[in-house]
Amino acid sequence: MLQYLVRRMLWGLLTLLLITFVIYGLIRFMPGDPALLKLYQESSDKKITAEQIEQQRKMYGLDQPFYIAYVKWLGDVLTGNLQTSFAYKAPVSSVIGERIGRTLMLTINSLILEYLLAIPLGLYFTARSSRLDERSGSMLLFMLYSLPSFCGALFLQLWFAVYLEWLPLHGMQSDNYEQLSTLGKTWDLFKHALLPVAAFTYGGLAYYSRFLKATMNETVRQDYIRTARAKGIGPLKVLCWHAFRNSLIPLVTQIGLTLPALLSGAIILERIFSWPGIGTLFFQSILERDYPIIMGLVLMFSILTLLGQLLADVLYAFVDPRVSYK
């Protein structure tokens, strides 16, 4: 097991190196120069001299070819320094750290909701297999699963925020947020988060309940379930106790695979709801050519993806004694 872990870690590190190198090369080839952009913003009327540009480029480390700059970036990362953002003039780690909580607020809540709702739904549909309500329910879930999240988010916005005016259209706080009491602040946040969380949740909910139903359908046909039924155990207990416990294995390992989606899944939805989290930051940094931020986020996404896959495999061995990595 230990040997397996070490091998996986080494491969993971190599993968990380490759990914960051490729992305670093790519973003350096993007048209547009952050140094020029910066100078234009600072001096709208004055002429910019070639000297100034050179100086600014040097400050950003753009005067070197990208592979040298990459090695420098890598060295900085290894010493725990993610460099300084061009646009925010603050360390990348603190810029990201400031926003990561807001993203997690959406994604973790929706993940909890997904599991809370998907498990009873999946069980219910297994129990009512092939009946009318199960068929129509499954069809509905399949449709939800196929509804792209940005379409769903727009429909939700249009209906609840524009026509009914029950909930705010976008943003995270109202304009008078600072004057509200603690309770009022929470309520305000809740109202703003409701639509994004709903848009996050429905796709995953459909996915997990379909997933659970599929694995349950397989488990239910196993011999030991028939034995349990033959012993005279009630259908509810067979389903929830005997069958569900074994269907839980793939469901648990799925958690690992959803780890990267927790952050990167937010990119599109945060943009729609103008939610000031990681996704919005990523977009801005691409548009502003804020290389350190892009690299910091790419590094984070890739590490999460790799960790998620590793976690899934380890969890798999952990919950299923039949699996071992020897």
């Binding site: 993968t15 790519l26 993007m30 990267p260 990167s264 990119i267 790419v298 996404f301 993806t305 896959q309």
Partner: peptide, 16 residues
């Protein structure tokens, strides 16, 4: 392992 959306956005930004 490469986050698809990240890669796609980076690639698109490279094209003028």
């Amino acid at each position: 392992c490469i986050p698809t959306l990240v890669l796609i956005l980076a690639l698109i930004s490279v094209i003028a």
